[in-house]
């Protein structure tokens, strides 16, 4: 299938689309944490980097198959998600966000100082094992997984926690356990995304996973519409491809990109597809008209 792609697209566009797919996987993971469960995370890029380095080191030092490396990346990241989540998820709202931001910066600095990661020089020579076909398949698996998670007993408990933590607990939901599970799942997908990233770019540097990147992911899902799978997909696609479409303005590209974020937010404060749910799209039911009130998301 990759050969079919290369008949129609040049290498550059294949690279861009592969990257988009990777971002989609990671953004959907963040959407589970922040959009569905309402737990603010400002450290998503750090989880990508944990996955990226784990998979790269497994490929380089142990020469294990790519699938193993990817899976290990996801699991290792989920473990770190749990380790961070356990003490911090009792913090609420912005404080959780701040703690995850801090964690992200600490991870970056630690990677800069470690030997096995190549420190500030970075880690080079990672085999290019990620292909567009594989990423497309994984994106679909991720979407299916997210859809199933959301529309289940487990998913309902996540949304309940986002909507009202005290009521959720009073209805018999074990808040701590549920939040940590959501965090572990969300970071698992970030880890897989990181593994794919490492084997696409073939070079890792901790500076590529700073908090600015974490905010990119947050912007993807907020602009798309928090808690909405189609929203996360649209937001990620628009913001990932925007710089490509803005190439004609050359040097002003990122300036316009920044203004675009401000503008889109003001025009649609609930995000492009805020409140749109995949299950409701399929059920062809009338989507409830939603007021202007603040709701959904990490309030």
């Amino acid at each position: 299938m990759d050969s079919i792609f290369s008949m129609f697209l040049n290498d550059y566009y294949i690279q861009v689309l592969t990257m988009l797919g990777i971002y989609l996987i990671a953004a959907l993971g963040l959407n589970l944490i922040t959009g569905v469960t309402g737990q603010l995370s400002f450290g998503h890029a750090a989880f990508l980097s944990i996955g990226a380095y784990t998979s790269a080191i497994i490929s380089l030092k142990l020469q294990l198959p790519f699938v193993v490396a990817l899976l290990a990346a996801g699991l290792m990241t989920a473990i770190w998600g749990i380790l961070l989540g356990y003490p911090t998820l009792r913090l609420t709202g912005d404080y959780l966000g701040i703690a995850t931001l801090g964690f992200g910066e600490i991870v970056r600095v630690v990677f800069l100082n470690m030997k096995i990661t190549g420190g500030a020089l970075g880690l080079a020579g990672i085999p290019r094992s990620t292909s567009l076909t594989m990423v497309i398949i994984l994106v679909f698996i991720t979407i299916l997984a997210m859809f199933r998670l959301e529309n289940s007993r487990f998913g309902r408990s996540l949304i309940a926690i986002r909507e009202d933590e005290i009521a959720a607990e009073a209805m018999g939901i074990n808040i701590t356990k549920t939040k940590i599970t959501a965090f572990a799942l969300g970071t698992f997908f970030a880890g897989v995304g990181g593994g794919l990233y490492a084997h696409l770019i073939q070079y890792l540097n901790p500076q590529d996973f700073g908090f600015v990147k974490s905010f990119d992911f947050l912007a993807f899902i907020v602009l798309g519409g928090l808690g909405s799978i189609p929203g996360a997909i649209l937001g990620t696609t628009v913001l990932t491809l925007a710089p490509e479409f803005l190439r004609f303005v050359a040097d002003y590209r990122m300036m316009i990109y920044g203004l675009l974020m401000v503008f889109m937010m003001i025009v649609r404060p609930r995000g492009l597809l805020g409140g749109v749910k995949l299950s409701r799209l399929f059920a062809k039911k009338k989507v409830q008209t939603t007021g202007t009130s603040a709701s959904g998301g990490a309030n």
Binding site: T34, L40, F215, L218, V222, L259, M261, R270, A294
Partner: peptide, 13 residues
Amino acid sequence: RSTRLAPLISAIG
């Protein structure tokens, strides 16, 4: 008066 994250994203932009 919108979600808490909206002005945050605006600030990042």
